[in-house]
């Protein structure tokens, strides 16, 4: 993580103490990866005394999809949520980093994701789906009005520059992880309470 930051700063000839703020992707995504990214950003911000802003990884991905989607298309970023699920959301691009949310971020099984997204599409306005969640979903996303970005497509990756664009367009989030899931122990505890009438 830090090596990437170091390499980037070196490549553009910017010293770390010249930074004025830091933007970090807050997910949703893998718990451990999110924590490492956010802890790194917060630690750097603390050491350099600059503010750290968060941006949604799904929203940043949607900005990337907007570059390859036909005008008027619905943008549906899909990230691997593990356990066979996807983190999905749907947006319409409103220009210059601005997004209108059509479907809020959630973790869904592939079939449920296909249903939710297909409902947003029409013959003249397809739903363009991209991100590493496409590969997880497999054939489940093979539904009318859904257009899948091939796995590994550049527009299917979350780009740091798009995180910055989201923040500049007013889409700033707190620099805390969006887990979109409770810890298993908490899920189990609630289940036991419900079952035991506690």
């Amino acid at each position: 993580m830090l090596e990437a930051v170091h390499g980037l700063l070196a490549s553009v000839g910017v010293g770390r103490d010249e930074l004025e703020r830091i933007v970090v992707g807050v997910g949703p995504g893998g718990f451990t990866g999110l924590r490492i990214g956010i802890a790194t950003a917060l630690g750097l911000g603390q050491a350099l005394r600059v503010p750290v802003r968060g941006a949604s990884s799904l929203e940043a991905l949607a900005l990337g999809l907007a570059e390859v989607a036909p005008p008027g298309a619905t943008l549906a970023p899909a990230l691997d949520a593990r356990r066979g699920e996807l983190f999905v959301a749907a947006y319409r691009a409103r220009g210059a980093g601005v997004l209108q949310e059509l479907l809020g971020p959630r973790a869904l099984a592939p079939e449920a994701a296909a249903d939710a997204l297909a409902a947003l599409g029409s013959p003249d306005a397809p739903v363009v789906i991209g991100g590493d969640g496409v590969a997880v979903a497999g054939p489940a996303l093979d539904a009318p009005h859904l257009v899948l970005l091939p796995a590994g497509a550049a527009a299917g990756r979350v780009r740091a520059a798009d995180l910055v664009r989201r923040v500049e367009a007013g889409g700033e989030r707190p620099a805390v992880p969006v887990y979109a899931r409770l810890p298993d122990a908490e899920v189990n505890r609630r289940r036991a309470l419900a079952a035991g009438g506690g």
Partner: peptide
Amino acid sequence: IGALLVGVATAKALAYGA
């Protein structure tokens, strides 16, 4: 490990930044 990773990432970034 998940707990250690938070401290290590934070400490690395603090050390690097400073």
